[in-house]
């Protein structure tokens, strides 16, 4: 039966409303989990606080298992679920820039808005930086475009590239996530730091 909007079980006009509700919920959860502290995100890099890693990997694994089980029970048609198109170089370079930004600024775009809304000054500056980045990107787009569009791979999935079934890949992702959780626990013990 799902996904609900592409199958027109829910009208498309509801898209923004649902996005709004989910967005508010997402922001609330981020704030409640303490992600509006820049130390939380920077902590992943230095190893003293790995909550962000755990939360996002738990979310990814939950969503992945949910989708695969839903598909198994024929509750959702995975072919209709949007897969982000892959532009390989954009992904690599963008990932490096974004990662560096996480370490330097201590926020991801989402958590910066959370922190901004509870009045953190560093988040306001970070948020301003986002717009400077957008402006620079827009102004230099003509120069960047060949690189930005390079290595277009379409809406591919990792399981297609590796030639294994989605379920098998999911299993490996779960193993990887669990290993990471254990490593994170050890890291937190080895690099303790006072909670602010």
């Amino acid at each position: 039966m799902g996904p609900l909007i592409p199958q027109e079980i829910i009208a498309e006009g509801w898209n923004f409303f649902i996005a709004f509700v989910v967005g508010v919920g997402f922001g609330f959860v981020l704030e409640q989990a303490g992600f509006s502290s820049s130390r939380k995100l920077a902590g992943v890099f230095y190893g003293y606080d790995t909550v962000v890693l755990k939360v996002f990997f738990t979310a990814a694994v939950t969503a992945m298992l949910g989708l695969l089980y839903f598909s198994l029970f024929d509750w959702i048609d995975l072919n209709l679920v949007w897969v982000n198109p892959t532009f390989l170089w954009s992904a690599i370079i963008g990932g490096v820039i974004m990662g560096a930004g996480f370490i330097i600024g201590g926020y991801c775009p989402g958590t910066s808005v959370c922190a901004l809304s509870i009045g953190k000054i560093d988040a306001m500056i970070f948020f301003g930086g986002i717009f400077i980045g957008i402006f620079l990107f827009g102004e230099t787009y003509a120069i960047i475009k060949p690189l930005y569009m390079a290595e277009y791979l379409g809406n591919i999935k990792l399981s297609d590239v590796l030639g294994i079934s989605q379920g098998t890949l999911a299993f490996f992702v779960i193993i990887a996530a669990l290993v990471m959780f254990y490593v994170a626990e050890i890291a937190e013990k080895n690099f303790p730091r006072k909670e602010y």
Binding site: V61, L65, L68, Y69, S71, L72, L78, S165, Q166, G167, T168, A170, F171, I174, I175, A177, L178
Partner: peptide
């Protein structure tokens, strides 16, 4: 997670 993952790894998809 291990249990759920194991099941999904061995069921035929789609």
């Amino acid at each position: 997670l291990f249990g759920l993952g194991l099941v999904i790894a061995f069921v035929p998809e789609n």
